[in-house]
Amino acid sequence: MHIPDAFVPLWQSAIYWIVALIFVALALRWARNELSEDKIPLIAVLAAGIFAIQAFNLPVAMGTSGHLVGGALAAIVLGSPYAAVFILTLVLIIQGIIFGDGGITTMGANILNMGVIGGFVGFYGYTALKSAGANMYLSAGVAAWLACFIASLAAAVEMAVAGTFPLVPGLIAMGTYHAVIGIIEGVITGAIIYFLAASRPDLLAGEDQQPSGGGVFA
């Protein structure tokens, strides 16, 4: 759902940029306060992995394809929606500037949809489902689906405000396609969290009730 430059008038793009930059500043503050040396490998792997997997468009029928966005994944793994803003901003900067995927003027809107909305819906969806008693991987999958779906509806509203898409057909089309694309988001997010829990449970936020360094015999 990378919005190209052509889809949003410049003055509206400027507003999305301002909102996005506020969240980027909050994400940097989160990073300064919460990011410890032991999370660096995880951030590097998530940034490279989310970029790679975003390049992999899977067919979802209806003449459409889609890929993982990864905002929910980053937020759940690192335990904060600001982690999603941080990592997705890095990914979107490189995609926009080097690969022309998503616009330059619309990068603010893309950060807002995929990083901010994706991260917040993913993170709070996950914590709500988990505290309601759902299994960790299922909670992550459903929250990731919701993150993809709600971000796409936000993009449809932005397209309507821009005068690019009519509101209702835009919502129906974006919602329909991303309800299916979101299944990819949900399955892959749940699976990656499963593999992380198996290989490096200490790296998963909120799963470190055992004393740090858990897994070591002492």
């Binding site: 468009n57 003449g63 394809s65």
Partner: peptide, 10 residues
């Protein structure tokens, strides 16, 4: 897939 993504399809 070479098909357009969700936003392009919309």
């Amino acid at each position: 897939s070479g098909d357009p993504d969700g936003l392009e399809s919309a």
